[in-house]
Simulated scan of single mutants.
Amino acid sequence: MQKSKIWDGAVRIFHWSQVLLLAGLWYSADQEWYGLHMTLAYTLAALLLSRLVWGVVGSENARFNHFVTSPRQAWLWLRHSPKRTVNGHNPLSGYMVLLMLTLILLQFVTGLMTSDDILTEGPLVALVPSAWVGIASTIHQWNINVILALVAVHIVAAIWHQWRGDKVITAMVTGNKLTAEKGEFKFRAVGLYLLLVLIIGGAFYLWQGDVVLEMLRSEWA
Rank of each mutant, 00 (worst) to 15 (best):
Q31L: 13
Q31Y: 03
E32P: 02
E32F: 01
W33F: 10
Y34F: 15
G35I: 05
G35R: 08
L36I: 12
M38C: 02
T39C: 13
T39D: 08
L40C: 02
A41Y: 05
T43V: 09
A46V: 08
A46F: 08
L47W: 04
L48C: 07
L49V: 11
L49E: 00
L49D: 00
L52A: 04
V53Y: 01
V53H: 00
V53Q: 00
G55F: 05
V56P: 13
V56A: 14
V56C: 14
V57R: 12
V57I: 15
G58Q: 01
S59N: 06
S59F: 01
S59Y: 03
S59K: 02
S59D: 06
N61G: 02
R63T: 10
F64V: 08
F64C: 03
F67N: 02
F67T: 01
F67Y: 06
V68G: 11
T69F: 14
T69M: 13
T69G: 00
P71Y: 02
P71K: 02
R72D: 00
R72F: 12
R72V: 13
A74Q: 03
A74E: 03
W75H: 00
L76G: 05
W77C: 06
W77H: 12
L78K: 12
R79F: 06
R79K: 15
S81F: 14
K83R: 15
T85W: 04
V86D: 02
G88Y: 01
N90H: 07
P91V: 04
L92T: 14
L92N: 10
S93D: 01
Y95L: 04
M96F: 14
V97T: 12
V97M: 09
V97Q: 08
L98G: 04
L99Y: 11
L99G: 15
M100Y: 01
M100E: 05
L103K: 07
I104R: 09
I104T: 11
I104G: 07
L105T: 14
Q107K: 06
F108I: 12
V109H: 07
V109G: 11
V109W: 08
T110S: 15
L112Q: 11
L112I: 00
M113I: 08
M113G: 04
S115Y: 09
T120D: 09
T120V: 15
E121R: 11
E121V: 03
G122L: 02
G122D: 02
V125H: 06
L127V: 12
P129D: 11
S130R: 13
A131M: 12
A131E: 15
W132D: 12
I135F: 14
T138C: 05
I139G: 04
H140D: 02
H140G: 08
Q141M: 11
W142Y: 15
I144N: 06
I144L: 12
N145E: 04
L148G: 05
L148T: 03
A149D: 07
A149G: 14
A149P: 07
V151M: 13
A152H: 00
A152S: 10
A152R: 10
A152D: 07
A152V: 12
A152K: 07
